[in-house]
Design a binder for these strands. Sequence first.
DNA 1: AATAAACCCAACCGCTTCACG
DNA 2: CCGTGAAGCGGTTGGGTTTAT
Length: 313
Amino acid sequence: MERHKSEEMIKKGPWTAEEDEVLVKFVNKYGPRDWSSIRSMGLLPRTGKSCRLRWVNKLRPNLKIGCKFSAEEERVVIEMQARFGNKWAAIASHLQGRTDNDVKNFWSSRKKRLARILQSTSPPRQTKSHKSKDNALAVHEMPTLQAPEFTSPQMKEESYSKFQPCSSSSMEDPKMIHKMPQPNFMNPNMANIDSSQPSLNTTETDTKPSNEILLQLSFTHLPNSKLDLPILAESHAEPNFLDVFTSHQQQAFELGDVSQLINFGSPFFEVEGIGRDDGRANNDRLASPDSFFDELPSDMFDYLEPCPSSSPL
DNA sequence: AATAAACCCAACCGCTTCACG
DNA sequence: CCGTGAAGCGGTTGGGTTTAT
């Protein structure tokens, strides 16, 4: 296969120790910028993009290389993902020594683990004819889950101030603070929901945006894997925990098992009109990391020993 | 011991944003 | 204001490693 000469000039694939050395020397000399000049100067046959990525993910100082996420880190990731969506860089900026890639990989591996757990504990799949797409269509019948309502600017501030970026993170960028996603629950990117999926927002979404659901959060509040689980949609396909969640909710709803329905909900979001205790909004439950974490399925996260090289957050 | 499944992670790609001329 | 290139970001993939059967 004949290749264009310019393509041959660009190396791809794993980095060698020699390349790393060159890159580190470059950064030490010029700083972490002008990545494209690494190639133009003839130092490395890599694109600037590739160089930057290598530096950010592997070579920059104070990275926690080969160190699994601690319980505290898991907690931060879970909470921040619930609040802000898949803003991996923003989340990583709050975790010392972690990169967006780390957070992203962590999250997706837990997602896969979740899918597998659900699949392995689900009852035999129904036939296609029985199941049908009614599941999806019935979604709009779901009760509306409510995001915590910021009744005052102070509440909102307090909510954000819980997450301060790690000051020592070399990844930190002053711009990042401004770029920290706001809890715009109307932003489709926030929900980590495949755009092909039916929206779970019920009607009136545009009238009460701040109250609408952030459904991907529910992934962290799975029922215990030993419990009966919803019938998975199309188990030959990639399990989608949106499906799982909605079908579980629907199942509970259809069975009139309100307690199960609520328990599957999120501490951040309450079922509208159905309080956990007395029907009122349980503000004292909102955003409580401890209670939040206690509800996670025990086998979803590792809670590993703190990394020896990590400093307490 | 062999194999499959699950897990982990490095790296790439495409898109968006931003700065600058 | 507009075009362009650099940088940043999120999604995805592929391959190596570990664990389970």
